[in-house]
Design a protein around this nucleic acid. Structure first.
Lengths: 239, 239
DNA sequence: CGCATTCTTGACCATCTTCAATTAAAGTGG
DNA sequence: CCACTTTAATTGAAGATGGTCAAGAATGCG
C-alpha cells in the first residue's frame, strides 16, 4: 500500500452500501451482490473539505472514488500557473482514469464533499472480470466526452456573456433537474473558479454577472446564491 | 436499411481485411477471426473527398467507420453558424458514438480520405458479445477524452500565438511520429479550419503564421506545406 | 488565360484583460 | 459580541489582444 493510498484510507469510515446514494450508480450498479460486498470491504467513506485535492496532476493513481455528495472540479494547470477547469462532476459520478498510471489532471472538491474511495487494483480487476461494469464506465466516459466537446464550443466560440450564461444554465439544470420555469441554487464555484472554467478573468465574470442582474435575467441574493426567474431567457442568452 | 446507410453502402467496394491498415486497430484488433470475417462481409471501403460529410450533426447514426487514410475532423456548429472543431482523427481511428442514436456532432473528411464503413447494429452486437472490443473502444474513448481536455486548456488559456504553435505541434507529431529535431508536413486543414479549431478568426491565424515565419520558427513552403526546423522551439512557444 | 477561392496584409475597432481602488463578506481573537 | 484582519467580489480607467472590414496577392481550376 503506497503513501497516497494509505493516507486516504486512514481518514475514512467503513462503508455501508445498502443505503448508499451511489448504490445504483456507474460503478456499484453494475456489480453483483458478491462483488459489491467485496468492494465494500475495501472501501472507505471520506469527507473532503472544499478546496482539498483528491488527486494531484501527475500523481500516481492508486485509488478511484465515487462522489457521494458535493461537487468535484477537474483542473489542468500550466507550468506558468495558468489554470483551466476541464470538467465538473456531481454525485454519484465516478472519479478516476482507468488504464493509466498517472493522472493528467487534478481533482479537487469544489464544495465540501463526501467520497467513497476504493483501491485501484481491485476495481481494475473487477472491470476486467465484469463486462457490465466495463460497459457502464465506457458509457460514463462517452458522456464526459460529449460534455467536454460541448464545453469546447463554449470556450472557443461564445462571448463572455454567453459563457457566463452557459455556466449558470449548466449548474441550474444540475441543481434542479426538473424542467422548471425558474430556478434557485447555490453556486458550487467561486468567481475565480468560474473564470478558470470559462477561460476568462475574475473581473470579466463579475461584470457579466452584474450585467445579467441589471437586465433582470438573474437575481444575486448573495454572491453564492442565484435565482433565475426565467430559465428560457437564460438559455436564449447562452446561445 | 435506411437511407443514409444504403447511400454509404452503394458507393463502396468489398473489404479485404488481411492487408488492411486497421487490421490491428481499435476495432478489428479486438475481434476473433470469425468475427473479423463476419464484420468484413458487411463492411465496405469508401473514398471520401476532402470536405465531404461522413455523418451530420443531429443525424441518426446507422453506421460506424474506421479511418483507413486521411484526416477526419469532428465539428460542432451553433444555430447562428459559429463553428468549432472539437477533434481530429487519424488512421486507424474509429469514428462513431456507441450507445446513442443521434450524433451530437458532424464528422467530415478534412483531407481526401478512405474509410471502412460497417453497420451499427452489427458492431453494437459485437461490442456486447466481446469484452475485449468493449475494452478497446473504452480505451479509445478515454484517450479522446484526455485529448479533448488538453485542448480545452488550449482554447481557454492560451494566446493566439500559443494556439497556432500548439496546433502545428500537434499535427507535426502526428505526421512524423519519430521524435526528430525537425519536421516537414502538409497541413490537413485550411486556414478557416485552423481558425475553427483554435477559436480564432482566419486573419488572426494567418497573422500568427507569418509571425512564426518571420521569427524563423517555421518555414511556409506553400500555404499547406510547413517545415519546422526546431521542434523544441515550437513546443516552447506552445507553452 | 480568366475566374474563383484562399490567403495575406493593413487600418480601425470591440472585447476582454490588466492594474488599481473600493466595498462586501467571512473569519479571528479579545 | 464586536473590533480587526483577511479574503472575495465589485467597479473603474487604461491598455492590449484579437476581431471586423476592406483591399490586394497568391493559388488553383476550368
Amino acid at each position: 500500500m503506497d503513501v497516497a493510498h494509505s493516507e486516504v484510507f486512514h481518514t475514512g469510515t467503513p462503508v455501508a452500501c445498502s443505503s448508499c446514494q451511489a448504490r445504483h450508480g456507474v460503478v456499484c450498479g453494475a456489480l453483483s451482490d458478491h462483488q459489491l460486498k467485496e468492494l465494500g470491504r475495501h472501501s472507505l467513506r471520506r469527507k473532503v473539505d472544499a478546496g482539498a485535492e483528491i488527486i494531484a496532476q501527475g500523481a500516481e493513481t492508486s485509488f478511484y472514488s465515487n462522489i457521494m455528495r458535493g461537487v468535484v472540479k477537474l483542473c489542468k494547470v500550466m507550468p506558468d500557473g495558468r489554470q483551466q477547469i476541464v470538467g465538473l462532476q456531481f454525485a454519484p459520478d465516478f472519479v478516476g482514469r482507468p488504464f493509466v498510471r498517472e493522472s493528467t489532471l487534478s481533482a479537487e472538491a469544489a464544495t465540501d464533499a463526501e467520497i467513497c474511495v476504493f483501491p485501484r487494483n481491485l476495481l481494475d480487476r473487477m472491470i476486467a472480470e465484469t463486462p457490465e461494469l466495463q460497459r457502464s464506465l465506457h458509457d460514463q466516459a462517452l458522456k464526459e466526452l460529449d460534455a467536454a466537446r460541448e464545453w469546447m464550443l463554449t470556450l472557443g466560440r461564445r462571448t463572455a456573456e454567453e459563457k457566463v450564461a452557459s455556466l449558470l444554465h449548466l449548474i441550474a439544470t444540475h441543481a434542479e433537474p426538473q424542467t422548471a420555469i425558474s430556478a434557485a441554487f447555490d453556486l458550487p464555484l467561486s468567481r475565480a473558479e468560474i473564470a478558470d472554467f470559462l477561460g476568462l478573468t475574475i473581473e470579466t465574470v463579475s461584470r457579466q454577472m452584474t450585467r445579467l442582474r441589471k437586465r433582470g435575467v438573474i437575481v444575486i441574493e448573495n454572491s453564492r446564491h442565484i435565482v433565475v426567474p426565467d430559465m428560457d431567457e437564460l438559455e436564449k442568452i447562452s446561445a
